[in-house]
């Protein structure tokens, strides 16, 4: 069986691992690196729960192979903030009740973080468009939209 030495930077930390070609990036993050905050909901690219930032851009980790991540930078939900020191986007989600079961949340947080960097002051339609690739079965999206609005305010106040 083919294997590859791979070097990947995740949340600022460099990891060296040996992987087989078919190992999905989502499984690599979760089971090889133990970063289980990235969730797997469909493994066909629709639900968005596994979205991570790949070189700063949101991408489905279930639709990439770990072998492809060589010398690339990844940010997962674990890289945003900590329990003691939540990222403003995480804070906003808490205050606006932008999560219920929390399963889809990591993919939404990474997607939204990148979105707000590009568009710091979005309107409701732009927000709905930005998270249209993240399915949530609990919230009906309303509190998520509210959370993104609140996060935009928090980030602007920070600057």
């Amino acid at each position: 069986m083919q294997t590859f030495q791979r070097s990947v930077t995740v949340n600022g930390e460099r990891f060296e691992r040996t992987v087989e070609p078919r190992l999905l990036l989502s499984d690599f993050l979760r089971h090889e690196l133990g970063l289980t905050g990235t969730h797997v909901g469909c493994e066909h690219g629709i639900c968005g729960a596994c979205s991570v930032l790949f070189d700063g851009q949101p991408a489905r980790s279930c639709l990439m192979f770990a072998a492809q991540a060589h010398e690339h930078e990844i940010v997962t939900v674990e890289g945003l903030g900590t329990i003691e020191n939540l990222h403003p986007v995480q804070q906003a989600f808490r205050e606006a009740h932008g999560l219920q079961c929390g399963f889809c949340t990591p993919g939404i947080l990474t997607t939204v973080t990148a979105f707000l960097e590009r568009n710091p002051n979005p309107d409701e339609n732009e927000i709905r468009e930005a998270i249209s690739g993240n399915l949530c079965r609990c919230t009906g999206y309303q509190h998520i939209v509210d959370a993104v609005k609140l996060a935009a305010k928090k980030l602007q106040a920070q600057e």
Binding site: G37, V77, E78, G81, I83, L86, R94, G102
Partner: peptide, 10 residues
């Protein structure tokens, strides 16, 4: 429960 869920620690 949110801090854990929001940081991937749940």
């Amino acid at each position: 429960e949110d801090p854990r869920l929001l940081t991937g620690q749940a």
